[in-house]
Write a protein that binds this DNA or RNA. Structure first.
Lengths: 354, 354
DNA sequence: CATTATTTCGCAATCGTTTCCGTATTTTAA
DNA sequence: TTAAAATACGGAAACGATTGCGAAATAATG
């Protein structure tokens, strides 16, 4: 039994910087291949030798070089996650869900924020084409129309999964929520609360989620015998002040809405800001419902009626499937399917007066 | 000029999977070393050869293998970011700041969430000891008292930076905000608004930020001739419902406070939830100020007076210094210093009645 | 005891890129 | 014209871990 004080002197200087497997093997008077097999618990090595190797590795503070390992094994146990926006409750929760499973399975997360910019997205994807991440999970940026960069990633054979904002053309698995039904139910709720002119607020009409949410809104409107007027569909952008202005203009227009279906959380917040500058009362004069994952919807003034997406679950399911595919490729496949996990409506004071 | 239709047939099958530098060199009838130099714009290779190599690389869809490169160069152009919590406006903004600079400089981010768990933190740090990230930026988890794992990382020679929740024992650069002054000014504001019994809400008294914020609170209290009573210092935890209960108990106690300095955002939210279950009015009966980076403080009920930390700037400055150290080690050093970037107080309705 | 089977290890190659050092060719200067 | 300098490339080694295949030693069987 070698005590810590008896670490061979020649290694004291390099212990901090780290020693290689070869140096460890020299010290043990074994072949590097034997040491490697011992550390990786190979059946080919005796228990006695394994114990000896592990003991010495700890004593000499040996840590395998991940670069060498990745090159040899052609994998890094890393998943790249590409999101369009970081300061966003939904994406943060998805990230947490992904990481729950990833950490559990020894996977690392490379995280990239496209800032809703397709050129950034393309650049990021390009950097992932050969050795860095074993798989990619992503939500498409709002500007993405040409998907050739995603096709290239897919053709490379890298496992690729979409969530939320999906890309239908790529034949892989997508995790979404029931955007259509949720928007439909949300709009129905507004109608049940007496709204006659319901506006739909959106960012980027071409996004998969926007299209579905708009469809649900339109169907609920039509079914109630109301009309989905073009002036009640407001296409916003990423700049908060610009959105506040657009919404303010709409609130001052002749066709002023008495209900608002916000397709994303930031538009509900912009509406709240716009309303604060008017005499309009929520919910008496204007009722608001929004897709939102904020934990403090109940603390807003007034508390916000929300359609909460199953972000954490989506993240966990994405990671489970991807890591399953990576670790047990015979049992898991990324088939061309859409998996839907339903959202939940929570009624609060922005649509129902207390 | 070789057109796309004239890509050598033998490479069509493997183009999707990718070709190696060696295969590219064979096609060009050049040595792999020449091709490498040409692609890396080395002065040793003629312009003519460079152009020829670049053209063929594009035609054959060549992407260098990052694993091989990292092994040879002993770097991955990756920075590991370790945060205690993801669903948190402050940390999300710091992350965005880090990524602004990192993306610009061609660096990638590995992101790890410790969930305030020191064992997780230790495990993560251990995985970063040999080949994966070139540097580490981190905010210590609330449970971290034994820092041997951080010392080990530091001894390894890996550049290590702290922000917000720092570790003083490690001789490196730390980025913080003026926790003491901000808490002092915030408490003074409560006193100026007439508060006589001010409670201090905190999570994890041993954290660097908690200590400094508490010190500021105590000094402002003492300076005003008030007393910092132990029952007015509430040590909370990570579970929201537990915090709501603790705060509710305090609001019903004989020593009920008329002012609250919340050292972190989640405690302000818990206070709002607790107050909602009482007849207490904010700010008439109880004034609240909190460290918080939420963008929607103005939409709360009532709008929250906040001490906003310069999160984005902290992130950017961290990344600048780290990447400077990594790319120009002669010009940049991680000296043992604390760099303070001040926070900003924004007065709103939780402390000043409209 | 001799042969066969099993266990336990070792040699050498692999992975793909970069870079040291040398060689051949071309250009320049005496 | 010859020698020296500059240019432009090539061969080989390095980086550190893993794994295919073979050799040596030990155990089991006839």
């Amino acid at each position: 039994m070698i005590s810590i004080l008896e670490v061979p002197k020649k290694y004291l200087d390099i212990m901090a910087a780290g020693i290689s497997l070869k140096e460890l093997a020299l010290e043990l008077k074994l072949a590097p291949s034997t040491v490697s097999r011992a550390l990786n618990d190979s059946y080919e090595i005796s228990e006695e030798t394994k114990k000896k190797v592990i003991r010495m590795a700890e004593k000499l503070n040996y840590h395998p070089n991940q670069f060498a390992r990745s090159l040899r094994e052609n994998k890094s146990k890393t998943i790249a996650v590409i999101i369009p926006e970081r300061i966003n409750n939904f994406f943060a929760q998805v990230m947490d869900g992904i990481e729950d499973i990833a950490q559990e399975q020894g996977y690392h997360l490379l995280v990239y924020n496209t800032h809703e910019d397709v050129d950034r997205e393309k650049k990021i994807v390009n950097l992932l084409l050969n050795g860095r991440a074993d798989a990619v999970v992503m939500s498409v940026s709002s500007q993405t129309s040409d998907i050739s960069h995603l096709q290239k990633l897919y053709d490379r054979g890298l496992p690729l999964l979409f969530f939320d904002r999906i890309c239908s053309e790529i034949p892989t698995t997508k995790f979404i929520t029931n955007d259509y039904e949720s928007a439909y139910d949300g709009t129905k709720h507004l109608i049940q609360q007496g709204c006659k002119k319901i506006a739909f607020l959106m960012i980027s009409k071409e996004l998969s989620i926007t299209k579905e949410r708009y469809r649900g809104y339109v169907d609920a409107i039509n079914e109630a015998g109301l009309s989905a007027e073009p002036t009640l569909s407001l296409n916003c952008c990423m700049a908060e002040e610009e959105n506040i202005k657009l919404i303010t203009d709409m609130l001052w227009s002749e066709n002023r809405p008495d209900g608002i279906m916000a397709s994303v959380e930031k538009l509900a917040f912009a509406t709240y800001q716009a309303v604060k500058r008017t005499k309009i009362r929520i919910p008496e004069d204007l009722k608001i419902i929004s897709f939102s994952n904020t934990a403090i919807a109940g603390l807003l003034n007034p508390s916000l009626t929300t359609i909460t997406q199953p972000a954490l679950t989506i993240g966990q399911e994405c990671a489970k499937l991807l890591i399953g595919k990576l670790t047990k490729p015979k049992h898991y496949d990324l088939i061309n399917q859409v998996i839907t996990i339903p959202s939940k409506i929570t009624i609060r004071s922005s649509t129902v007066a207390e």
